[in-house]
Amino acid sequence: MDFLSRLFRDSGSKEAAVERLRLVLVHDRAQVSPGLLETLKEELIQVISKYMDIDEKGMVVQLNSSDQRATLMANIPVRRVKR
């Protein structure tokens, strides 16, 4: 089993550690809690819904980091534009 697991490298738990750390540190550094992000997301939905019909379930709002800097990433699938 050890041999097999070695063939599929990234199977160790370290990848999970690095990924979780990166995410938690983006929030720590920017002092943005997951709760604040959730509130922001709900308000975004309200505003955008005035103009567009959006897929709320498919919507992603998250903080990312690049070069020690936080960036807000929002991916909002649009079903149709209201006229």
């Binding site: 490298r9 990234d10 199977s11 160790g12 738990s13 370290k14 990848e15 550690a17 690095v18």
Partner: peptide
């Protein structure tokens, strides 16, 4: 080595 601990670089 087993990928179960972050290394120096990480």
């Amino acid at each position: 080595r087993k990928g179960d601990m972050m290394d120096i670089e990480d």
